[in-house]
Lab assay of single mutants.
Amino acid sequence: LNLKQAKEEAIKELVDAGIAEKYIKLIANAKTVEGVWTLKDEILTFTV
């Protein structure tokens, strides 16, 4: 999975969960695949 694909998957998951745009922007700015997954997990843990 490359960075672009990771971001697309994570953003789709966050949108489906009804997460606010400000958190989705954090994913869009992530620099690594690991960073994308870590941010996604943290956002889902603390906002859902």
Rank of each mutant, 00 (worst) to 15 (best):
30 A>D: 01
24 I>V: 07
14 L>P: 00
10 A>P: 00
17 A>N: 07
11 I>Y: 05
29 N>Y: 12
17 A>Y: 09
43 I>Y: 05
1 L>V: 11
15 V>H: 11
46 F>G: 12
5 Q>C: 07
11 I>M: 09
7 K>H: 03
30 A>S: 05
30 A>G: 03
9 E>K: 14
10 A>N: 00
34 E>D: 09
47 T>F: 15
30 A>H: 01
8 E>V: 10
25 K>Y: 09
36 V>Q: 01
15 V>P: 01
29 N>M: 13
37 W>N: 14
48 V>E: 10
1 L>S: 10
23 Y>L: 07
39 L>M: 09
16 D>P: 01
35 G>S: 12
36 V>S: 01
19 I>S: 04
4 K>H: 09
30 A>L: 07
39 L>H: 02
29 N>V: 07
18 G>S: 04
29 N>H: 11
10 A>V: 07
25 K>T: 08
32 T>A: 02
6 A>G: 01
39 L>W: 03
23 Y>H: 05
3 L>A: 02
18 G>I: 03
25 K>R: 11
47 T>I: 14
26 L>W: 09
33 V>E: 04
30 A>I: 04
11 I>H: 03
5 Q>V: 07
6 A>W: 04
18 G>F: 04
24 I>Y: 09
28 A>R: 13
7 K>P: 00
44 L>W: 05
34 E>M: 06
41 D>V: 11
45 T>Y: 12
7 K>C: 05
13 E>K: 05
43 I>K: 00
35 G>C: 15
4 K>E: 13
41 D>A: 11
17 A>P: 01
34 E>C: 10
39 L>N: 02
32 T>M: 01
43 I>P: 00
37 W>F: 11
28 A>K: 10
4 K>F: 07
7 K>T: 03
44 L>Q: 04
14 L>T: 01
17 A>I: 07
1 L>P: 10
28 A>C: 15
6 A>L: 05
37 W>M: 14
38 T>A: 15
2 N>F: 09
12 K>L: 06
34 E>Q: 08
22 K>W: 12
6 A>Y: 04
43 I>S: 01
2 N>T: 14
33 V>M: 06
6 A>D: 01
38 T>D: 08
26 L>C: 12
19 I>D: 01
8 E>C: 11
31 K>F: 06
21 E>V: 08
25 K>I: 13
32 T>I: 02
12 K>S: 06
48 V>M: 13
33 V>F: 05
34 E>S: 06
34 E>I: 08
22 K>G: 07
47 T>V: 15
34 E>T: 07
